[in-house]
Amino acid sequence: MIKINDIVKIYNPKKSNEFEALHGVTCEIADGEMVAIIGKSGAGKSTLLHILACIDNFQSGEYYIDDTLVKDLSEKKYAQIRNEKIGMVMQDFALVEDFTALENVMIPLNFSKQKIKDKKQKALEALKSVGIEELAKKPCSKLSGGQKQRVAIARAIVNEPSMVLADEPTGALDTKTSAEIMELFKKLNSQGRTIIIVTHDMNVAEQCGRIIEIGDGRII
């Protein structure tokens, strides 16, 4: 369960270019939901996603993951949450280009505080679950966009996080590949994972179970 209460996010506080991106956003996302966050450019949807992904902070409000308050924690604790609770998929894939697909998928396992037996096998299973096991040894620089996004999804799920956050995951893909990637998200959701997708593509949003629309830093 993800719960956010009255989140306020201000960029460049107390400076001449101060900008309030979120004005007290409140919402709940239950375990196993597949949610799309939509809105115009600059509406605050990516800001919200970054806060949910623990890669950005906020000025006021509360953020709970599974009843744990995620605020003012140590950097170590935030890193642990990003590693164990959250899988992140970015529009431009965010892969280490000179790593192989397998090495990329192994990154979260290598940063894990848990003792993980046979990391390689686990990473291969994640690649298998997104249908690209045979590309394990291929450098990411030699993969197509769709293949790269599958690697990114495999990396997002390899540590079995409770939620997968995706920022415009189909934004850099053609229609056919986008559809394949959405099928993959739906499959992951059917396995019980919470999926939150930020998109401006209504076709993508409509495939999700719920749509949250943001406009001018507020949920509409």
């Binding site: 992904a53 890669i55 950097e75 170590k76 890193a79 642990q80 990003r82 590693n83 164990e84 992140m88 970015m90 965010a94 892969l95 280490v96 990154i107 979260p108 940063f111 894990s112 990396r155 540590n159």
Partner: peptide, 15 residues
């Protein structure tokens, strides 16, 4: 830097 940012979202500390 971008690789480091990728490590960060995967659970590394920035510094």
């Amino acid at each position: 830097l971008r690789d480091y940012a990728i490590y960060y979202i995967c659970g590394s500390r920035w510094k």
